[in-house]
């Protein structure tokens, strides 16, 4: 995984609350056996009509969304299914961070493992971000600070180990494999 220290980008705002992973990646795209190319299906049913044509009113189909790496979403994004295809799709599309007041547990875990930074902010900051789509903001993972265009700094929580892994491009699988001696000792202790 690529180390991530700083994400600086304009935002895309999708203000709906409770954006579930079925919206992020509808089930009919889960029959894939790889993790590549899912960006094209991100928000498929909000993004395309029945004929597969882009729906112009949807933000991801608008020119200002191009190149944006930060998605600002309504409260409780990522609820529902555990499908990792949702963060795979967001990452493949080009997003590197998701900002909301609440981020669902499994989606947050899955995002962290794929270089997609889940950022939980307070209501006031969130309200400002929702009202100012396209704002150029930065997310500094080192200091756990989100910077607004006027220089205001907002600290966000981030589990220390996940942050370490993101900053250093460390993959958790390798860390877990280094624990094999402790796992073997545990198995012996419980007779597993």
């Amino acid at each position: 995984m690529e180390p991530i220290r700083m994400i600086r980008s304009r935002t895309v705002v999708i203000a709906s609350t409770n954006i579930d992973t079925d919206q992020l990646m509808p089930a009919r795209f889960l029959t894939t056996t790889t993790r590549e190319g899912l960006g094209q299906h991100l928000f498929a049913d909000w993004r395309y009509d029945a004929a597969g044509q882009p729906i112009p009113s949807f933000v991801l189909n608008q020119p200002q969304a191009k190149g944006c790496q930060i998605l600002v979403a309504g409260r409780n994004i990522g609820c529902g299914s555990s499908r990792e295809h949702a963060p795979w799709g967001l990452y493949d599309y080009g997003f590197r961070a998701v900002v909301s007041t609440e981020i669902a547990d499994i989606f947050r875990n899955n995002s962290l493992k794929n270089g997609l930074v889940p950022v939980v902010v307070d209501e006031a900051t969130h309200a400002w971000l929702l009202e100012n789509p396209g704002a150029e903001i930065s997310i500094d993972l080192e200091s756990r600070v989100l910077r607004l265009p006027d220089g205001r700094e907002v600290t966000f929580p981030m589990e220390s180990f996940a942050r370490y892994c993101l900053l250093n491009g460390v993959d958790e699988t390798g860390y877990l494999l280094s624990q094999i001696p402790a796992i073997e000792a545990y198995e012996q202790r419980i007779g597993a």
């Binding site: 555990s82 990792e84 499994i106 875990n109 899955n110 493992k113 877990l176």
Partner: peptide, 20 residues
């Protein structure tokens, strides 16, 4: 509890998960 595919890999490889 439910997990994502990366964690499915963790459990297949180590029978363990990293959890808070």
């Amino acid at each position: 509890f439910g997990i994502g595919t990366t964690e499915v890999g963790h459990v297949l490889a180590t029978q363990c998960l990293l959890q808070r």
